[in-house]
Simulated scan of single mutants.
Amino acid sequence: MHQLREGRRNTQAGRAEQTCPDRRQMMRTLTPLMPTRGYFPDFLTPAAASGGLESGIDAVLSTPKCRLHDELSLLAQHNPLPAWTRRLADGEVDTLHWLGRALRRYHTDVLGPRWPRIAARVEADRRHRIGVQYRAGTEAMLHTFGPTLSWQSSVLSAEYPVDRDIHLDGRGLLLVPSYFCRRTPVALLDEQLLPILVYPASPPAPEQASTPHSRLAPLLGHTRAAVLETLQGPRTTSELAEHAGVSLSSASEHATVLRNAGLVVSVRERQHVRHTLTQLGADLLNGGMPLSRQYP
């Protein structure tokens, strides 16, 4: 959203947004909530998004009314907000669902066509950090961020728009690589929430750009290897089909075979079935190196 508003048409998001049929409606809904400078509400970036788009949207729509009111009031101190945001601040169900539809449609129309490339860069960055952490430890991993972040004497420092200290007090810090984060890392304002630091995902080096697909294809078949590789994070059956480029029935069939082989576990959540790699599946996908989880 920030890149689009700044007119960065050279970006992939900018080119995709130009073809979006509902651009004006989505922009009218989302733009007031996401100013390009200063504060924007923490509830729009929930940790639950680690489970996928629908999990993230569900978390946004489940934000407690008191938090909606407090965060939107803080946003309104420096940004003029349209009248409908008052209903959002009151937790009005129809307005929340309207916001959810706008987020979902924006993701589909603007990001969807480029999502495999976006996800590949984020995953390449994450795998690189995990690999260093696995081989050399956490401190070595924290030294891989170059000028973006620096680690010294138990303090992680970042170039940041304002002078700010965040004390973990024994809590873990979630590092989130982001395709669209630019210039400086971003942290949540509310220090009572899970500490999260979003940083710019580095473009993959040539050796990071390779995938296990070619290695696993002779064993599993090209399509099934692609389905397994798609499970870098939890996916519903429809998400599997979309990201692996297969039909819904084919995705379901391949997920069943992988589950029977002990590589995948499937759990029904409401109207969806969510598939997740087992440790065996993760080890196979990662060439025998155990994968760290994105979230504690």
Rank of each mutant, 00 (worst) to 15 (best):
T256Y: 12
L174R: 00
R5N: 11
V132Q: 05
T144R: 11
D22P: 03
I130T: 14
Y39H: 15
P82F: 12
K65Y: 13
D109A: 06
R126A: 08
E207A: 04
H128G: 01
C181K: 07
L4T: 09
C20A: 15
P204R: 01
H167P: 03
D169G: 10
P82G: 09
S154Q: 10
S210M: 05
L291C: 14
P206R: 12
Y39E: 10
L284Q: 13
R164A: 00
A209I: 15
L263W: 14
M34L: 14
A119W: 02
R171H: 01
D94G: 15
G7V: 07
H107R: 01
T19G: 15
I196V: 15
H243N: 10
G51I: 01
P296Y: 14
T31I: 02
L277Q: 05
L173T: 00
R135Q: 02
E269Q: 07
V198K: 11
A244M: 07
L284M: 15
Q133V: 10
P147G: 14
N260Y: 14
M34A: 15
Q271V: 04
T11Q: 09
W84K: 00
V257L: 13
S214L: 09
D190R: 07
S153T: 08
A16P: 04
P64G: 06
L30S: 14
Q192W: 03
A136V: 00
R104L: 01
L188F: 07
L174S: 06
G38K: 05
F145E: 03
L175Y: 04
S178W: 02
L173K: 08
P206F: 11
P32E: 08
L72R: 14
Q133T: 13
L174G: 04
H143K: 13
T184C: 08
A226K: 15
T85Q: 02
L156D: 04
H254C: 02
R23L: 14
H143C: 10
T108L: 00
L33A: 05
H254V: 09
V267Y: 09
H143L: 07
W115A: 02
T138V: 07
V257I: 13
A251Q: 02
V155I: 00
G287W: 12
S157V: 01
Y134I: 08
I196P: 11
S247A: 06
L197G: 11
R215Y: 15
V227A: 03
E123A: 00
G137I: 08
G172H: 01
H78W: 03
L44P: 14
L74Y: 02
L284V: 01
S55F: 01
K65F: 10
L75N: 04
L168E: 15
T45A: 14
A244Q: 11
